[in-house]
Design a protein around this nucleic acid. Sequence first.
DNA 1: GTATTTGCAAAGCGTTTGCAGGTCT
DNA 2: AGACCTGCAAACGCTTTGCAAATAC
Lengths: 153, 153
Amino acid sequence: MAVPKSELQRRLGVFADTFRRKGLRATHQRMEIFRELAASDEHPDAETVYQRVVKRVPAVSRDTVYRTLASLEDQGLIRRTAVLGGPARYDANTKRHHHFVCTKCGSVKDFHSEALDDLSIPRSVKAFGRIGSAHVQVRGVCSACIGPRARPR
Amino acid sequence: MAVPKSELQRRLGVFADTFRRKGLRATHQRMEIFRELAASDEHPDAETVYQRVVKRVPAVSRDTVYRTLASLEDQGLIRRTAVLGGPARYDANTKRHHHFVCTKCGSVKDFHSEALDDLSIPRSVKAFGRIGSAHVQVRGVCSACIGPRARPR
DNA sequence: GTATTTGCAAAGCGTTTGCAGGTCT
DNA sequence: AGACCTGCAAACGCTTTGCAAATAC
């Protein structure tokens, strides 16, 4: 689940560069909020990010977490994913990937697949408009929720 | 966009059967709410369903629309799809299909593709848990939002 | 007759916003 | 100085819920 140190360093570098280039400020709060996402492959929601960051930076507020996440998303540093009936999930993995979503607890897991990356969008879809990206969402029940002591959300 | 009359009849039949079998009541309101979804290939949100149904059944309330949509979803008669930052969209097309989502106005359009239906989920995903369904979501900007007089939401 | 369903109103949750004070350059 | 950022609190949009009256079977 943990991101390799080298990749984390790379992500933090991209973050600092991007913000500097746009004239935005890489404040302590923003740094810690981004680090929280960049250091793990989980897809926490805003409240979870807040709970974790507030331990290290007690002065941070929920609003700042929301605003920072929106700002990071605008800069393309993180992605937001909607999950049915739950809060939005955030994700610092900007490489092309797909999602497994647990319909019980709402957890999201990334997976990679070259085969799926190349999937061909039917011609008919082009008639709908300009196509941006395509990704696969697999729904199912994660092992934690199936397991002997399931703790569904 | 309109569903063929024969398909509409079929859907209404399934609705009546399913509710009867489960001991639920096929009230006037529920019938009209389901018909609104079953008669079209759009993916309206709850508010839109309410606005349309209330024209024909002025006595219906928003709460009943929400409750009925939840109930129809429980029975597997409709599907709910989350769209980033917007209200949930509902959909009476229970055949396997995929979605085009407009990132400007949030509209959702169905498309079918045998090639995509057969996409092979990588072995590694099975490790996450029990796999239910897989579907492709294409994001882009619909022609209405690109068009000469774009009216983004 | 009885369990279900409805409308109303109020609360709930996740999220966004206006504002005044504070911070960085 | 000037732009940006923060925390606070209040508002927001979407959705769910408790309750008493109405309804379907």
